[in-house]
Amino acid sequence: MDAKKALGALITAVGLLLLLYALAGGAGDKAIGSKETLQTEAIAAILGWFGVLVGPALWFGEAPAVVRKAAQGGGNS
């Protein structure tokens, strides 16, 4: 696994953990974060969200084979 893919896998894993931590905490409290202060749970949720969005893009890299094949095959659907 090259460095870019390893970084993507790491970001995805950390993102997932942060997101799950926030979601689990939210399920107990009926809220992720609070209106009074910007809490750790809410920050974890947002950072985890970004991690989950961007991590797999680095991890899996280029377009999937099925997408490339559509381009090579003339694309007619």
């Binding site: 979601l23 939210g26 399920a27 009926k30 809220a31 992720i32 974060g33 609070s34 209106k35 009074e36 202060t37 910007l38 809490q39 809410a42 949720a45 947002i46 970004f50 969005l53 961007v54 893009a57």
Partner: peptide, 28 residues
């Protein structure tokens, strides 16, 4: 059942969060 709350100045926090989201979503 579960609300996502971003503190006392949620409007401005969301503006920043959505800005980062938009850069990611528009570039990927």
């Amino acid at each position: 059942n579960v609300h996502l709350l971003l503190g006392p100045d949620a409007y401005h926090t969301w503006i920043i969060v959505l800005g980062v989201y938009a850069i990611l979503a528009a570039s990927l």
